[in-house]
């Protein structure tokens, strides 16, 4: 069984500070209106009583990537280590992947007139570094790992995250603990 590199999102540690999202833009030099990693507020009453908790999402590097299946130009590549890469030079900006991805990951860049998405900073990984978002997280709430090694203590989804089974998302979550309001 091949490796499946993916992100672990620890919503128990995530404080919703957006550093990951900004570091990603900084490293990947993205247009102001493009974000490859986004911090979402989990709906406040998801767990009964209101609270403020967050999750940080980027590409889920799916086992069956809908983007790759829909792409007419084979611009997407699923690497042996599981990372889904978008080859910009092959992209013709047809937007089929934008339609197909259940997680809104590929984004159409109006200036480049092409699509782009998180590639798990594979060139940083290949150099032995962490992805920009991972290394910038002040609370170590995101990390990257071969998700085949993870057990059941890691959830495949959190409330608000679309069905991970559609495309076999490899993102794994650590559930937030919920504050008790006295």
């Amino acid at each position: 069984m091949g490796r499946k590199m993916g992100f672990v999102v620890d919503s128990n540690r995530c404080i919703g500070c957006h550093s990951c999202s900004m570091a990603c833009k900084n490293y990947n030099q993205l247009n102001p209106d493009i974000t490859w990693r986004t911090v979402y507020d989990i709906k406040e009453d998801t767990y009964g009583q209101p609270t403020r908790i967050t999750m940080s999402l980027a590409c889920n590097h799916c086992d069956i990537p809908a983007c790759k299946e829909a792409c007419p130009t084979n611009a997407y590549e699923k690497r042996e280590d599981g990372i889904v890469i978008h080859h910009e030079e092959r992209c013709i900006g047809c937007g089929m992947c934008v339609y197909a991805c259940p997680y809104n990951v590929p984004q159409f860049d109006k200036e480049k007139k092409k699509v782009g998405k998180c590639h798990l900073c594979y060139e940083r990984l290949d150099n032995g570094q962490s992805p920009a978002c991972v290394s910038s997280c002040p609370t170590q709430a995101i990390y990257h790992i071969d998700t085949t090694s993870l057990g059941d203590e890691f959830a495949k989804s959190l409330p608000g995250f679309p069905d991970p089974e559609i495309t076999k998302s490899t993102t794994r979550f650590i559930k937030p603990s919920i504050v008790r309001k006295l």
Binding site: N12, T51, R52, T54, V179, R180, K181, L182
Partner: peptide
């Protein structure tokens, strides 16, 4: 324990919150 008029993101990380 977080004591605050607002249930902040910090409160979201606490065990107990006192509003």
């Amino acid at each position: 324990v977080v004591i605050d008029p607002i249930l902040t993101n910090t409160a979201g990380k606490a065990h107990d919150f006192i509003q």
